[in-house]
């Protein structure tokens, strides 16, 4: 009986460790669903997001954006699990969901950053397909 509190504590820690990513995943899904609906509305042949396309988007160097930020990797490093750095020298938490579990769980925040950074890197807004692919890639990392 003496072991009970200890076991309970362990169970709680395990529960918390399992619950955080599960809850984050649950918050991420509606955001992806929203992009999926928009992608389908734009193209009836839309057949789901692709982590491979998301990786290409992440690694590609574009010519139409700002000279200092031709690619996502300019600030985020080419490793999705790596700690990035802003132009002002501040660290950016890894984009990979395995490293930063609460990434892509706040719709307003997700839209804010795609809105800012797609213009800076691609020189235009990202499409719903690109946003969904990007998140799908980062969720797989």
């Amino acid at each position: 009986m003496k072991a009970e509190p200890k076991r309970m504590g362990l169970a709680l820690v395990l529960l918390a460790a399992l619950t955080v990513p599960v809850l984050a995943g649950a918050a991420r899904q509606p955001i992806l669903d929203g992009y999926a609906a928009a992608a389908k509305a734009g193209d009836a042949a839309f057949a789901g997001f692709s982590a491979a396309r998301g990786e290409t988007l992440f690694q590609t160097k574009f010519a139409a954006g700002d000279a200092e930020t031709p690619a996502c990797t300019s600030c985020h490093t080419d490793n999705p699990g790596g700690t990035g750095r802003t132009r002002a020298g501040k660290d950016i938490a890894p984009m990979a969901v395995s490293k930063t579990p609460d990434r892509y769980t706040d719709r307003e925040k997700v839209e804010k950053w795609f809105g800012r950074n797609c213009k800076g890197v691609l020189g235009r807004e990202c499409t719903a397909l690109e946003k969904g692919d990007f998140i799908t890639f980062m969720a797989s990392k």
Binding site: D66, E68, K112, R116, N117
Partner: peptide, 9 residues
């Protein structure tokens, strides 16, 4: 914003 898009609501 110093060459960065920092638009906010």
């Amino acid at each position: 914003h110093f060459g960065e898009n920092a638009a906010l609501s």
